[in-house]
């Protein structure tokens, strides 16, 4: 069976992915809404920045984050001035890194969902004297529900699959930054193949189940979304 430290790593991973998903729901929704509705010239650059983590090697992200969050970096100076210390080697450091790392997985499905709604329902809502706020919660959110579910699942799963960035800024601390992917790497490096197999199998089954749920749930395109 899984060892105590394996379970600790899994629980840590679930917590990291859960918190990251919640934070990204809050940050990603307005960003996606703006990207879906705006006609500003800098919509392009913002969209490109959001998509960067899809393309960048995790080592680039990890390198910049390590320097930025370190004691001499801008983020590090800021967190120190707040009396919070520095973020590398902490759980919240991993959360910040994961928010960057998984940003496109939240924003892009949401943006697609918002764009798919189109102008018509919003205009109808406006003629019925719904405030923009009301419109968003009574019209947009229900219509974009599939987008939210897709975005949430993808963000959660992608954060669970994070490895390179965590390796670079985590410091491999049990219960704090040693997530499941790093724990497996540790097992493999130490030639503890039996331990690696058990945890790796759990990850494989989990990832398959998540994707299966995602594809099974996705509405049939023939019926129209």
């Amino acid at each position: 069976m899984l060892t105590e430290t394996d379970l600790q790593a899994i629980w840590l991973t679930v917590r990291l992915a859960g918190i990251t998903t919640l934070i990204l729901l809050l940050i990603g929704t307005p960003v996606a809404w703006w990207l879906a509705r705006s006609r500003a010239w800098w919509k392009g650059p913002v969209g490109a920045v959001v998509a960067l983590p899809l393309v960048l090697p995790p080592s680039v992200l990890g390198f910049y984050l390590l320097l930025a969050m370190g004691p001499h970096g801008p983020v590090g100076q800021f967190t120190q001035s707040l009396g919070l210390g520095t973020l590398p080697f902490t759980f919240w450091g991993l959360v910040v890194a994961s928010v960057f790392y998984s940003l496109p997985f939240m924003v892009q499905p949401l943006q697609n969902a918002f764009e798919a709604i189109g102008e018509r329902p919003l205009e109808v809502a406006a003629t019925l004297r719904a405030s923009p706020f009301d419109t968003f919660f009574s019209v947009v959110l229900p219509l974009a529900r599939p987008g939210f579910i897709t975005a949430g699942i993808l963000t959660f799963a992608h954060t669970v699959g994070e490895f390179g960035v965590v390796l670079m800024i985590g410091g491999n601390i049990p219960g704090v930054t040693r997530v499941a992917s790093v724990q497996i790497y540790d097992h493999v490096e130490a030639m503890e193949y039996a331990d690696a197999h058990r945890l790796a199998a759990v990850m494989l089954v989990f990832s398959f189940a998540v994707l299966l749920a995602l594809y099974a749930w996705r509405p049939n395109p023939k019926k129209g979304a």
Partner: peptide, 20 residues
Amino acid sequence: KLVQGENIAQTFQFASTGNA
């Protein structure tokens, strides 16, 4: 207070960047 480098080079890098 222990943090682990994946190898001795990363261990050094954690300290040389001032993070440890």
